[in-house]
């Protein structure tokens, strides 16, 4: 599966990239919201994983951009340090498909990602 990851923290990025690659996914790295949205067309990802607090565009803006571009497909998982109820609600209202808070369990992420893998289900 082609996964686009938007995360500004270097260490988090490295960890996500490593784990997702090990799980057999194609990982495209972007370091802020603007870069993520810009690369959507080029890479046509099957899944987007995004942080919320990022430079230029926040993760919530990434969600609404993805949903605008692909009204039917491309699920978005939010992986953020912010766990406030209203943020989570807002994320889902904007169309996010899943929400995980940091600290996160890599094993759990792996399972949640697999849920969106259409080819695996088939």
């Amino acid at each position: 599966m082609k996964i686009l990851v938007a995360e500004d923290d270097q260490l988090m990025m490295k960890m996500l990239e490593f784990r997702l690659r090990k799980d057999g996914h194609d990982v495209i790295i972007t370091h802020d919201g603007r870069e993520a949205v810009a690369k959507l067309d080029e890479f046509q990802p099957d899944l987007v994983i995004t942080d919320i607090m990022m430079p230029y565009l926040s993760g919530l803006e990434v969600v609404s951009a993805v949903k605008k571009k692909y009204p039917a497909g491309t699920p978005v998982i939010i992986l953020s340090g912010m766990g406030q109820e209203n943020v989570v609600l807002e994320a889902f209202q904007l169309g996010a498909d899943d929400y995980m808070t940091k600290p996160f369990s890599p094993n759990e992420l792996s399972v949640r990602v697999r849920r969106f893998d259409v080819s695996a289900v088939k």
Partner: peptide
């Protein structure tokens, strides 16, 4: 304004 909106503060 955009950069102000993206500041980290809830």
């Amino acid at each position: 304004v955009r950069s102000l909106l993206s500041l980290h503060y809830h």
